[in-house]
Design a protein around this nucleic acid. Structure first.
Ligand SMILES: [Zn+2]
Ligand SMILES: [Zn+2]
Ligand SMILES: [Zn+2]
Ligand SMILES: [Zn+2]
Lengths: 138, 138
DNA sequence: AGTTAGTTGAGACATTGTATCATTTAGGGT
DNA sequence: ACCCTAAATGATACAATGTCTCAACTAACT
């Protein structure tokens, strides 16, 4: 499984807390706030502590499995594998996922130029959703 | 000036607090945390309140002048006009700005397809910086 | 199974963000 | 230039979010 490999490769242990947090993000299918992660993860692990959720989210980010995203109402976390291309309304926060991506081929180019090992990317377009656009007319 | 136009267009007033917050972000040239914004902005407005900084940052985001970005140690804000293309190290948070962009031409396409009015975009590549890459080898 | 260092959970604590409200101020009308 | 009014501010109290410490627990190796 993805989680196990990523953790082991970086020298961390595979624990119940980490499994249940990753699972929460995976089944949610949308970005979650730390509080939401805690709530969801506790269904599979009632005694889970708040501090552990924060520690775990930070760890999963460092390991490359999870990505933090800002938004109205704080940072949210999602698996690095889903929803990395989207339209987001700067006014109301509405989001819309995109299918295709124009940035795919740049990884090698960037590795060569900067010595960076590129593993993924985030492409967000900011603007106004149809609703906010209409409302902003007058 | 950019700030004035954006605020007026959306029906908000142009105040000293808003000017000084925007100026802080502009002169910093890098993403700032709310606390840093407060400190910087107080140089030009000693009595500035903490609550006002939060209110103002949220407003400037809604108006499209400022973009929030997550990172190790919380959300940071920067002008929407600078540094929207970067490499960021998932492990240590190091960043590196990019010059060119493969996503420029998609705005009209997206407007047509989704009714979204695209005003800007953020393209971030995640991975390991040269240092973390080396350290992760063994 | 035994050993041990990484990890956890509880709770105190610190920081960050929000709500309330009296006071001030931007901006349009006169 | 002066009023007027609604918007905005700053102080303060409060709530939420995030961090630290430490004794107890457990994953992983032998
Ligand atoms: Zn919207
Ligand atoms: Zn892509
Ligand atoms: Zn790094
Ligand atoms: Zn671009």
């Amino acid at each position: 499984m993805q989680l196990e490999r990523q953790l082991r490769k970086a020298g961390f242990r595979v624990t119940r807390a980490r499994r249940v947090v990753a699972a929460a993000l995976a089944t949610a299918g949308r970005p979650l706030s730390p509080a939401e992660v805690l709530a969801a993860a506790r269904r599979g692990h009632p005694g889970l502590g708040r501090a552990t959720v924060y520690r775990t989210l930070n760890l999963l980010v460092r390991v490359g499995l999870v990505v933090p995203r800002p938004g109205p109402g704080g940072v949210r976390y999602s698996l690095a594998s889903e929803g990395m291309h989207r339209l987001v309304c700067r006014n109301c926060g509405a989001e819309r996922l995109l299918a295709d991506c124009p940035a795919g081929g740049l990884a090698e180019e960037l590795a060569r130029r900067y010595g960076f090992q590129v593993e993924g990317h985030l492409l967000e377009f900011y603007g106004l959703c149809p609703d906010c656009r209409r409302r902003a007319k007058p």
